[in-house]
Design a protein around this nucleic acid. Structure first.
Length: 446
RNA sequence: GCGGCUGUAGCUCAACGGUAGAGCGCUACCCUGUCACGGUAGAGGUCGUGGGAUCAUCACCCAUCAGCCGCGCCA
């Protein structure tokens, strides 16, 4: 690995990778070579004239294999960057695979549209590679944290038989004989069923929303980090667990993703020992009192409210996070648990992070009769939920869980302008691998 | 679906009622220490599309398409 070259000073080594940059000085040529681990400067000197000749033909993204000697750089020519103290004196170059001319330099800042149409290339940029290494670290941290707390990961189905909840904008899959299937908008029912099986479960997987939204925080396909746990006192157990997860995540990112954060100019969140927390009604009252904007009769927060509350939490409580609790029963799904101490309102919460809602969670109705009541209250037919309802017939503990948007969390963690930058291959109303079909069209013409 | 903004070279952008320019990239040549190397020269554009006003427009007007941003909905 290129990152380890510093351990081999004086040795003859062979490395493989991509040409990141070529700097041709005529009689000597510098190459920055990149592999999965990092980059190193390689220098082709006149005494290895064959290497110089080949080096002059190389261009960005050519795949090469180099042989040479690892030298310590002369004092004046060292840099502060990784491998800045060494360089590879190249003795021979093998071209493994040439690359066609790039439409633009790999690390050039381009418009989002151009970026998305050229993902196979633009994802190779330092910036994109950093973003998705951080994202992988987030899912690692999520799994590590929940595993440590006795949770079991499971795979939720994505093809769902009935759109039982109704009204949601779902993608239809007209394949199955007896009825139309849908792409799952959430693993909700399955993770609740799994509480009866394994008590503490989680799933990391794609969910699908057929909504024609065009914003910097919405996707038609996103990754939901779900979890559900049995034997909770109320929703505060969940909020407490999420608080501890955020602390663990920040610590892990600080340890493993320093370079990525530096490269992206991002700063780790400030997360106090306790996150600020208030009921929705209190939040709307606060907004009214402080700004005069009166949304007090609204059952939910507007994006502007979410941004304002986040700024308030940062300013007044030194926190990038704030919990909002007790959404009205009318606003939440039929399985949400009503707070007996605050009738008409639910034991539910959202977590706002840097201006955006990244989590919705809450306690669920676990008693069979209560769930039937909830379904009827929403004007839905319990008969249609009979499959799901079996779990509640056969004994279900008090339980609850959350869904956390991976891309939104990544976006806000790294202060990215658009959630699509935190998605490898984002799907929206206008875009499903546009370039893939273009390429296909070209090849069939030939 | 509604509102706002944008569309000029491969990429990022500028200019101007008299038919276009920069930086980067690309090509050739020069360059023994650069690290976004530097230098000289060069190629590359029917100004998103259609219509209209004007002696004349890429520039003004209308339509249309595409994209971005905001809103509804939500993670």
């Amino acid at each position: 690995m290129i990152v380890e070259l510093g351990w081999h000073i004086g040795e003859t080594v062979s490395i493989s990778g991509w040409v990141d940059v070529r700097r041709d000085h005529g009689k000597l040529v510098f190459l920055d070579i990149r592999d999965r681990s990092g980059k190193a400067q390689c220098v082709c000197l006149p005494q290895h004239s064959e290497a110089v000749t080949i080096a002059q033909t190389l261009r960005q993204e050519w795949v090469v294999q180099l042989e040479g000697v690892v030298n310590e750089r002369p004092e004046k020519m060292r840099t502060e960057t990784a491998n800045g103290n060494i360089e590879l004196e190249v003795t021979s170059i093998t071209i493994v695979a040439p690359a066609q001319e790039l439409p633009f330099p790999k690390d050039e800042k381009v418009n989002l549209d151009t970026y998305l149409d050229n993902l196979p290339l633009t994802l190779r940029s330092d910036r994109a590679r950093a973003i998705f290494r951080v994202q992988a670290e987030i899912t690692n941290a999520y799994r590590g944290f929940l595993n440590l707390h006795g949770f079991t990961e499971f795979q939720a189905p994505k093809l769902i038989g009935d759109d039982a909840e109704g009204g949601a904008n779902v993608f239809s899959v007209p394949y199955f004989n007896d009825k139309t299937a849908h792409l799952g908008t959430s693993p909700q029912f399955y993770k609740q069923i799994m509480v009866g099986v394994l008590e503490r479960v989680y799933a990391v997987g794609n969910v699908y929303r057929a909504e024609k939204h065009s914003t910097t925080r919405h996707l038609n396909e996103y990754t939901s980090m779900d979890m559900e746990m049995g034997f909770i006192k109320d929703h505060s157990d969940l909020m407490d667990l999420e608080l501890r997860f955020m602390h663990a995540l920040i610590k892990q990112l600080e340890m493993n993703c320093k370079e990525e954060f530096a490269l992206l100019g991002a700063t780790l969140p400030t997360a106090p020992a306790e996150f600020p927390m208030m009921k929705l009604r209190e939040a709307l009252e606060l907004i009214y009192k402080e700004t005069g904007r009166d949304n007090r009769i609204e059952p939910d927060l507007e994006p502007e409210d979410e941004r304002w509350l986040s700024e308030w939490a940062k300013r007044e409580k030194g926190s990038d996070f704030i919990f909002i609790t007790h959404y009205p029963l009318s606003k939440r799904p039929m399985y949400t648990y009503e707070d007996p101490d605050d009738l008409g309102y639910t034991r539910s919460f959202d977590l706002l992070f840097r201006g955006v809602e990244i989590t919705t969670g809450g306690q669920r109705r676990h008693e069979y009769e209560s769930l039937i009541e909830g379904i009827k209250m929403k004007g839905l037919d319990p008969e249609k939920f009979s499959y799901y309802l079996q779990a509640f017939k056969y004994g279900m503990p008090p339980h609850g869980g959350w869904g956390m948007g991976l891309e939104r969390l990544t976006q806000k963690m790294l202060n990215l302008a658009n959630v699509k930058e935190a998605t490898l291959f984002p799907r929206d109303i206008n875009r499903i691998d546009t370039l893939l079909s273009d390429v296909h069209a070209d090849t069939t013409e030939d």
